[in-house]
Design a protein around this nucleic acid. Structure first.
Lengths: 229, 229
DNA sequence: CGATCGCTTGATTCCGATCAACAGGAGTGG
DNA sequence: CCACTCCTGTTGATCGGAATCAAGCGATCG
């Protein structure tokens, strides 16, 4: 595990993402998190929490990117989600985390005590509803991802991933991916070689451009979407 | 789609599963569902609700088994979950269902209006918490399943599935599977042939017994668990 | 009894994994 | 500054597991 302090991490911290006003219905919990949440910073690859650790906090990404994953004994790893600025993670019903959370790149998060959120939810129905809505949204995303893992070919997976990330990160046709190929592979249930080869293939199809390995340009959304089943 | 009425379906209805007292904390919602819920029966393969239909109800299985799935345009199908007696399904945050639900075998369910549950949750914090807990439990299950889809070999998947089903259905070493091979395949992200072959292989390993194709006897849990990563 | 359905088994193919080598930067230290 | 290593990503060659194509088997049912 990388050692660090908030002060250290701050030295490499990115500027906080411009704050966008959330829809009114999300104010209750978010407002509270931003009010009482403590800021923490994590270096690239630092563990935010571990599998089986007590889930005493929940988190909101303010900058960077976070991966939720589990490592099997034999080294195989599955990444179940990436969380980007503005998103909540670490929410559990049970006492412990079931997966671990790690910073994909230098990242900062707001941290709120679970007990505080629970207390708030008990008093305020809107907060309770918000908490539920977050869990339900995660569920929806994960269910969609099962379709990818269970049904799709490598090319379809990579295409779906790029489309999805472009929408989430920039909304446009250019994306700067925060994660390395290995993370993409572990997210898509492929190997790093297959991800790399598939990217090259999409590039020669003229479906994407690859100015650098992390910088993706969507040149033919239609072709990519066609793959996306 | 199979045509049916409650009356027709009732003619083939199984006896209602023995009711087990749920833990106290689950009484609030369950009690209400059982109080105000209407019973409905569905033939094998009948659709309970469809992908993209408005999610006006939520359901509790009382007998049989239900699969949650999505069919892609090209015929590929992913089953994201099986629901057995006592379990809740059909709960959505958004207005519409994202997946469809079908009876695996002749089944009966209790149906409650979503609006009733929502109203109840607004008044009663325990109910709200229960609803959240259900969604969170689903999320947890689905996340575990992603590990299987993303990391595991065919043999590991089948072994994990059998162990899991044995625990959920009987708790012992013998299971009567309610679903056909095709459903298992679509749940595990494999083909029917691979599922069949793997079962035969586990049988020759003496890991399981197969008195009939649906009746499974776990002969060597340790060997199966070893596969389960 | 033929027909259909669910399942198994066999032969072959193919996609992605694995093994292996290499290329381009970034950082480090002489 | 260059030589060095480390890290990430790409590419090539080969292998293997699961998909696909195809046939057969037993049970249930009209």
């Amino acid at each position: 595990m990388l050692m660090q302090t908030v002060a250290q991490a701050n030295s490499s911290r990115q500027p906080v993402a411009a704050r966008r006003a959330p829809p009114a219905s999300t104010q209750a919990l978010f407002g509270s998190i931003e009010l009482i949440g403590a800021r923490m910073a994590f270096f690239r690859n630092a563990e935010i929490y571990g599998d089986d650790e007590p889930a005493n906090y929940l988190y909101k990404v303010t900058s960077g990117a976070v991966r939720i994953c589990k490592l099997l004994d034999d080294g195989r790893r599955q990444i179940t989600a990436f969380h980007l600025p503005g998103e909540i993670f670490g929410l559990e019903v049970g006492a412990d985390h079931r997966f671990s959370a790690e910073a994909v790149i230098d990242s900062s998060v707001l941290v709120i005590k679970r007990s505080a959120a629970v207390a708030l939810a008990a008093r305020d129905g809107d907060v309770a509803h918000q908490i539920w809505a977050y869990t339900a949204r995660d569920l929806q995303r994960v269910q969609e991802h099962m379709l990818l893992l269970g049904c799709m070919s490598a090319k379809e997976r990579v295409a779906a991933f790029l489309l999805h990330m472009a929408t989430r990160i920039s909304g446009g046709n250019e994306v700067e991916l925060p994660m390395p190929r290995q993370d993409i592979a572990d997210y898509l249930g492929l190997t790093i070689e297959t991800v790399s080869r598939t990217m090259t293939q999409l590039k020669s199809d003229a479906s994407i451009g690859l100015p650098t390995s992390r910088h993706i340009v969507l040149r033919n959304r239609a072709a990519l979407s066609r793959l996306d089943a």
